[in-house]
Design a protein around this nucleic acid. Structure first.
Lengths: 215, 215
DNA sequence: CAAGCAAACTTTACATTGGCAATATATGTC
DNA sequence: GACATATATTGCCAATGTAAAGTTTGCTTG
């Protein structure tokens, strides 16, 4: 019987599909995107460079699978930081800080995860993983009335706003373009507390009239 | 005398450096990033594949120059949309909408502009161009008191917030990851009016009390 | 148990790519 | 006009992704 661990017996690998994804992540974290070639991944998994074709169609398919793994770790990362927070606002902040911290601690993987050049975003598996990651933020922001207009679809817009904001910051601070703009430590975490910049947000338990309690 | 236009006389090109950048942008817009090879760019400019080395060191250098050109067009794009707007709030909205619209109408170029894999963000020229683009948003947001805490460095933080927000939205809507989340038309422009989501921001001419003109 | 068969992996081959070195040609300066 | 320099070309190389054909393994079926 073949275990799920890194077993490998002779000709047949056992679980090459998983091994390739893991090898890819390792190379990504160790050497960066530039050295993440199909041949390098295959070599690290101990197979020939043509082996991946059986499990993923081409390089793009393999990179897509690696990105999906990245999204799963991304979601887990946010949830882990979340468990320490108690209040609703604290939880929201923790999730967003986790988002940025993951991007910072796994620059290359994060870069791949959002690279349309390398990944196929129409892939169901990647979509599912990305969606799960998005849902972490969405769940927390449930009931958060950030959209004062309270228009139909306001919840979705609030989620998308949160995501846009935190993702843009992560991307910019990672790119180094915001580097010359700000001093170093700022890039490692969100320099904003949601409660500071958005002092008027309020949690609305029901679809009642927008309360202006926070002013 | 050699003009700045697409002149080319015999062996020496005249202004190959510029021609290569333009050729790169054209290929990018027509065929996408996947076909943007050093050889393809050189061929389109009508020179051999080794010619670019004299002007840019390697492919990375050329791509960096193309990205810089992208940032200049990006800034010009925002400024163009800006001229139609009158009020301060309208101008802020116009700039942000312009940001997103440029990203949408020039997906590939926008992608390259923020790709750390292809560009050298430490390049002075690219930095200058990116900074100029950033300054469009920064100028408009001058005096915008978004940071309620009004802490020292609040202006910088406000700028960075705006940039993060609009850039994140552009990136996500371009990636198609927000596609399954929202209906199509939403991706083409910011579904938020700054005045809607931020009804309490106020322009502070001096350090006086924040006026509530925007409601 | 044997034969067949499909899946998994390897080997080989090939077109394309970016970079390097050597060479050729044009431009400018004395 | 001659020499130095900038500019561009040719030829070459290692590395890459993909495709096709060949080999091994494990499962199924008679």
């Amino acid at each position: 019987m073949i275990t799920d661990t890194e077993t490998k017996r002779g000709y047949h690998h056992g679980n090459l599909k998983r091994a390739l994804v893991l090898a890819g992540v390792e190379i990504l974290e160790a050497d960066g995107m530039a050295l993440l070639s199909l041949r390098a991944i295959a070599a690290r998994a101990g197979v020939s460079h043509a082996a991946p074709k059986n499990h993923f169609g081409c390089l793009r398919g393999l990179l897509t699978a690696i990105a999906a793994e990245g999204f799963r770790r991304h979601a887990a990362f946010m949830r882990a930081g979340l468990s320490a927070a108690s209040g609703r606002k604290d939880r929201l902040n923790a999730a967003m800080q986790g988002y940025v911290r993951f991007a910072h601690e796994h620059k290359q993987l994060f870069m791949l995860m959002f690279s349309a050049q390398h990944c196929d975003f129409s892939d169901p598996d990647l979509n599912l993983a990305a969606r799960a990651s998005y849902d972490v933020l969405a769940d927390i922001s449930a009931g958060l009335d950030w959209d004062k207009a309270n228009a139909p679809g306001g919840q979705r817009r609030t989620e998308l706003m949160l995501w846009s904001f935190v993702h843009g910051f992560a991307q910019l601070s990672n790119s180094g373009l915001s580097g010359p703009l700000e001093s170093g430590s700022m890039a490692e975490h969100l320099p904003f507390d949601i409660a500071d910049i958005m002092p008027d947000f309020s949690y609305a338990p029901g679809p009642g009239p927008k309360t202006d309690e926070a002013r």
